[in-house]
Design a protein around this nucleic acid. Structure first.
Length: 347
DNA sequence: GTGTATGTAGTTCCAGATAC
DNA sequence: GTATCTGGAACTACATACAC
């Protein structure tokens, strides 16, 4: 990595794909539940930025020694590999989505007021001399960096295989809730409209055909679930009692009022996935690592080669307050599993 | 960079089902 | 019986891929 200051702005250059995480990128809870509508390519560019973002890059901006938020630069080799295109088609692939993305606004939820604030995603986004430069909007620093408040850990290999816009929106949401103690509750149709970026600043549907729930569910729920199921072997979708795959429509009278997602995450079992997880654990921040160990304990399988060590378990317990804040219950059931995990680790 | 082919998203319509 | 909803299908508009 060659990080340097230019005109009092931190520049984070990515000229090798190895500078990106091997398997996962993180998306903060606030970004996840924002109102945002992006095309598939725009989603890929956003995911590339999120893969590279790290709080330490913003330190000089936070402490006032830099006057602007950091600029993230990606060279063509990295872009070609990430987007899966040849260098000759890179300009065509990037020019349209980059232009659109530069003008995108994101609706950030204001829970106290039950409102959304719409804010530009980026201060600047340009592609010149085979280098993509992205300057995130510093007004969204909390949303970009706020992974300690809870985040989705998204497999970018799977994410990049997804072709549908709504699949790329739904997959991180399902990645946010990976264990049975921390589940995604049934979502109202209105909440889902917002989640899929279908509402304007007045809360009205931008795409009028989605007032028809059948169309909305078919395009935003059913088809994305089928696509995700094809590409992620660790995510198992269940069939509802009415025969729908991966979701259940909850009706109020004859109208669909809510949608419940029916899925569970399988434990990664092969050695390569295990190795990736261990590598990730060594890369991530302590709290993120604690959350990962928590999830391992929740899904504890005796004798599994990937079970946590004594050190990992002890470190996790140093973060109990933060774990509880992020919705991870340390109840009797969890502590019973923890005890078994510790016994095995010590044995 | 341009032009074209292809695939996907969004819209609309109509028939049938069902709650009131 | 009526109004409203779902399911199915076909169409247009837009986004993306790719050859040149």
């Amino acid at each position: 990595m060659s990080d340097k200051k230019q005109n009092e702005q931190q520049v984070i250059l990515t000229d090798n794909s190895r500078q990106l995480p091997a398997q996962f990128f993180k998306k903060s809870h606030d970004l996840l539940f924002s109102q945002l509508s992006l095309s598939p390519r725009e989603h890929d560019i956003m995911a590339l930025l999120l893969s590279r973002l790290h709080q330490e890059h913003w330190q000089s901006y936070i402490d006032g020694t830099a006057i602007r938020a950091p600029a993230y630069q990606f060279k063509s080799d990295v872009l070609c590999e990430w987007l899966g295109v040849s260098s000759t088609n890179l300009y065509n692939t990037l020019s349209g989505p980059a232009e659109n993305l530069a003008n995108r606004a994101i609706g950030i939820r204001q829970p106290d007021r039950k409102e959304f604030d719409f804010v530009s995603l980026f201060k600047r986004l340009s592609y010149k001399d085979a280098v993509l430069t992205i300057i995130p909007n510093d007004e969204l620093m909390k949303e970009y960096l706020g992974v300690s408040q809870g985040h989705a850990q998204v497999d970018h290999h799977v994410f990049r295989k997804l072709k549908k816009e709504h699949s790329k929106r739904l997959y991180p949401l399902l990645s946010r809730f990976k264990n049975e103690a921390h589940t995604l509750h049934p979502q109202t149709i209105e909440e889902l409209h917002g989640f899929f970026g279908l509402l304007n600043e007045k809360g009205q549907l931008i795409k009028t055909s989605f007032t028809n729930n059948k169309v909305f569910i078919d395009r935003c729920i059913r088809q994305p679930i089928e696509e995700i199921a094809k590409h992620d072997p660790n995510l198992e979708f269940l069939v509802s009692d009415t025969g729908t795959f991966g979701y259940k429509a909850i009706k109020s009278g004859r109208k669909i009022a809510k949608v419940e997602f029916l899925y569970r995450w399988r434990r990664p079992v092969n050695k390569q996935e295990q190795a990736e997880r261990v590598k990730l654990a060594n890369e991530v921040a302590p709290l993120d690592r604690a959350e990962m160990v928590y999830d391992l304990v929740q899904q504890f399988v005796p004798g599994d080669s990937g079970n946590p060590s004594v050190e990992e378990l002890n470190t996790m317990m140093m973060y109990t307050a933060q774990l509880m804040e992020s919705g991870r219950a340390l109840d009797a059931d969890f502590m019973a599993k923890f005890s078994v995990a510790m016994s095995e680790a010590m044995g």
